[in-house]
Write a protein that binds this DNA or RNA. Sequence first.
DNA 1: ATGCCATACTTGTTTAAACAAGTCAAGATC
DNA 2: GATCTTGACTTGTTTAAACAAGTATGGCAT
Lengths: 247, 247
Amino acid sequence: MPKAKYDEIYMDLKQAIEKNTYSYGSLLPSENTLITQYDCSRNTIRRALAGLGEIGYIQSIHGKGVRVIFQPSERASFTVGGIESFRETARRNRLNVVTKVISFSIVTVEAQLAEESGFPIGSEVYDILRVRYLDGKPLILDRNLFLKAFVPGLTAEIAERSIYDYIEKDLGMQIVTSKRTITVEHASPQDKQFLVLGDYNCLAVVSGQTFNADGVMFEYTQSRHQPDYFSFHDTATRKKKEQFYEK
Amino acid sequence: MPKAKYDEIYMDLKQAIEKNTYSYGSLLPSENTLITQYDCSRNTIRRALAGLGEIGYIQSIHGKGVRVIFQPSERASFTVGGIESFRETARRNRLNVVTKVISFSIVTVEAQLAEESGFPIGSEVYDILRVRYLDGKPLILDRNLFLKAFVPGLTAEIAERSIYDYIEKDLGMQIVTSKRTITVEHASPQDKQFLVLGDYNCLAVVSGQTFNADGVMFEYTQSRHQPDYFSFHDTATRKKKEQFYEK
DNA sequence: ATGCCATACTTGTTTAAACAAGTCAAGATC
DNA sequence: GATCTTGACTTGTTTAAACAAGTATGGCAT
């Protein structure tokens, strides 16, 4: 799968860290050692290491070495982090998953929706409402808006399976960047109608935009999660500070 | 503040994008153009661009150019994203902030706490419980555990101001990496005692570990947020997929 | 023993060059 | 007109080299 050399090294080191070959708190072999080990240039090693730093596996210490800061987590299993589809997450956790389409329509984006979604006014979009069941329990209420021009031929049947499979495999479009916002909101009547919330009166809401390989935003999604099955992970470095716009 | 050349270019381009000099959907000048513009090598430009990609400002398209995908957000104001202290966030939003220390003690980490926090068993830690007020409203209940050996001389008085200021300015320790998990939990009796939750019966919980420049985890924090004032932002690229351990 | 310092490590930054590979439009060919 | 080719762009990957700067460890002088 990985074709770039730095990606192979990245994957290899990542596995080694996960398998505890390089354990938490210890230092990786020095860059020079890795250069001879992988027979490559220093830049290539450093690129692989940069990737591991981004996902919170390592942290380099100037003049000293590169420390492993990855700890295998026991809970951290069900996650909406990364760009991972619901199906992928479910499969990873060996869960039975069913998706039911509540409504499927085509709408034209007006001012308010444009503000909320980031789509330009007047765009034609598919508007899809779905409920996701895990092991029979309705846990997630999804509203997806897809730019019609970019996802032609989308049907309710496809939406019952995996829209992402359709987009990536059938349409050959690649998903690259995804921006998300997490909030906690009161449960709406619609939430209560379609989800089993138990005694929660609120839920976790993940709103996000998805961009394809051309840098075009073609999807806006709002996922409303039953709290028990929601967990989101993130790793930040000082670098990322102030990544959001200050008015 | 930025000393590295790639960081200057990064900051400069970032500002230009925020100021709409390069607008959403358009292409940046090509790498070669930027090279002459900034009088530097291609590597340096690419490093700056990589940084902008990480924070979701741009997305490069092979053979074509680099597209701007940053959209100024109107809401996205109060945020716990990035490594940003509560005070920084409050200042950014021009809010009045007060912190009240509920309890301040020193404990030895036993098995269960070790599991939860990631501290080794037997460590001595400060255990601090605080309530954060925004404009007079008690909105966040914070529990901080600090490795005593790394934050010597911490007092309740310091905790009422800013612990991070103390750590960074007085102790000269630099905070580098931070890992967080977001969940939604039922409000505990303690939550109800110290926070004003209105008719919410649950809250947003951010649990996180913080690492210093030596790659040592010296803090574990759990922040329990009143839902109205909680919003978390994230940008993911396909690269980051599977960043979490699969058992 | 204590402190200083040279030195041999480590990672951090920057430049330069070469080639691969994707995109696009103009021009040649059918 | 439709299609193919070419060439001039673009970004993607990799190597090489040099110097800066932080860390640790030894030995030397005090």
